[in-house]
Design a protein around this nucleic acid. Structure first.
Lengths: 291, 291
DNA sequence: TGCTTTGAATTGACAGGATCAATTATCTGA
DNA sequence: TCAGATAATTGATCCTGTCAATTCAAAGCA
């Protein structure tokens, strides 16, 4: 019944190759070749290390060097040797560069806004774009340890609570649940991992310890737009590895049968079901894993 | 609660610009620059008119000329003047060119397939890619008059019936409905329009006439991946214009209150609700519009 | 400490892609 | 029939991206 999947992927590829060309030339709107504009943008977005930018943009080192030189001649950036390693160089915007970067930002934002404004269901469109972007850049998803009160972490937690509220028959009220103390999810007692995809938080997991040999896995969540990429497994593996580093011998977790994909994940990755070990009103299924 | 929409659009843009670069170089896998490969592909996909290809790929005419020359030197294509207009040229594949094109096709298909295979929810991903592709190329959506029994038309109709079955409480059985005779939706009695987006049918509408001054609008459908682009309005306007060409004075249609977006569209575009005018078991709301 | 190896950035050389302007051939409409 | 418009080609030129050679600095090792 559905159209050939391969044809649909290729249609997508054609759409982006032809539209991204147009997107590129719009960067030329300020009279600067695309390469230079991309470098300027990376620096403006906070990258300072030349090698990191080169790597991120996939540029040849010779070309990178020339692009930096031309931006320098325009007075937009200045480069200086990295104090830690004098072979490397770091770049930063000058005052002029900062305002030029702001001009690009304004253009890009306006373009993005007008793209959304032309659509009468922007939420649907954004959801779709998130799915595609996460999938295209799945190799670039990085797991970062963050404070559970960090903005990215609390974004994930809010999304997680929202999803529980939708999926549990009786809803979900975090104040009735055994909300873990943030300190228990920070080293050395535990950890909190956030999966970041190009600046967007798309998943998280908490390792809640008490200094002893038993710890709990909490708050495993993957954004709907990032499901199917194996991210939950990756988060769990990373959390287990941190637990081993912290000399934890036994991990436990609770979950709810209204989240069958989670239960299935645990069963498939070496967890075994155990009896209830707390009086939290929400979970109905309990697991442990010996490390 | 949701992340800044503009940031999400820009994240998408970064994802495709960086991945499309990789996609480009993969085209180089056969030792031919991207431009030449794209031209070869367009010709292989059935485009013959050089100016049309140039326009579609957004190439400079000088560059296009050189690319054609190099493909000709490789023995992959031959060009000859357009018999209708000797200023223009048409291009077609030679036997060698055809097999080279097939090699590209095989590579592209394999790449698309492996992209999907890396995802454990390919249907979700495809749906998202369809939404994005339709939105990016909304300007390129064309409405074509087709026989209702044409493959693209019947694909739309099957999807349409499937959607009715899902949305009507009692389901939908086309054999119980007043299925219009295909001949009534072909000129000179009527017409059937299919909205095509780069080869994929994404919407349709039927104009069912009987040779007189009254006709009916039937089978208005827009693919879920193309909603929000104003396509339904565009299809309706086109159908009305064809009706005027056919000297039709009054249009009628029936619909169901389970499809509120349709009812809303009709109310907003000059249709007025009337009494039931047929005994079809499915519709419960009826409209007419004087042309 | 001196030596070798490795890594980062720069520079020159060069192939190829992209753009502009001029030219030729052809078509269209007055 | 002729002026103006359009399509393709060609030459000139600039820019981009790549390769290889060079310089300078860091890291590892005897």
């Amino acid at each position: 019944m559905a159209y050939d999947p391969v044809a649909r992927v290729r249609r997508f590829n054609r759409a982006v190759t032809s539209e991204v060309g147009a997107l590129d030339t719009s960067f030329l709107g300020r009279g600067r070749p695309l390469g230079a504009a991309r470098v300027l943008n990376s620096i403006g977005r906070g990258q300072t290390d030349v090698a990191v930018i080169r790597d991120y943009l996939g540029l040849d080192s010779g070309l990178m060097s020339r692009l930096l030189r031309s931006l320098e001649e325009e007075g937009l950036i200045e480069t200086l040797p990295n104090p830690q390693d004098a072979r490397r160089r770091i770049a930063r915007l000058t005052e002029t560069g900062r305002s030029e970067f702001q001009a690009y930002e304004a253009l890009s934002n306006a373009q993005a806004k007008s793209f959304l404004a032309r659509h009468s269901r922007p939420d649907e469109l954004l959801r779709a774009m998130d799915i595609v972007a996460s999938s295209l850049r799945r190799e670039q998803i990085v797991l970062e340890q963050k404070d559970p009160q960090h903005e990215d972490a609390s974004y994930c937690l809010r999304e997680y609570y929202g999803e529980l509220a939708r999926r549990f028959e009786k809803g979900f009220d975090v104040s009735l649940s055994r909300d873990p103390d943030a300190k228990d999810m920070i080293r050395p007692r535990g950890a909190f991992l956030v999966a970041m995809s190009d600046g967007l938080p798309i998943g998280c997991v908490g390792l809640k310890g008490n200094g002893g040999e038993v710890a709990e896995i909490k708050r495993l969540w993957v954004a709907p737009s990032a499901r199917g990429l194996g991210l939950a497994t990756r988060l769990m593996t990373a959390a287990e590895n941190i637990a081993r580093e912290l000399s934890i011998k036994l991990l436990r977790l609770d979950t709810n049968s209204a989240l069958p994909e989670a239960t299935q994940l645990y069963r498939g990755t070496g967890w075994s079901e155990i009896d209830r070990f707390n009086d939290d009103p929400y979970p109905d299924t309990f697991f442990e894993k010996r490390l």
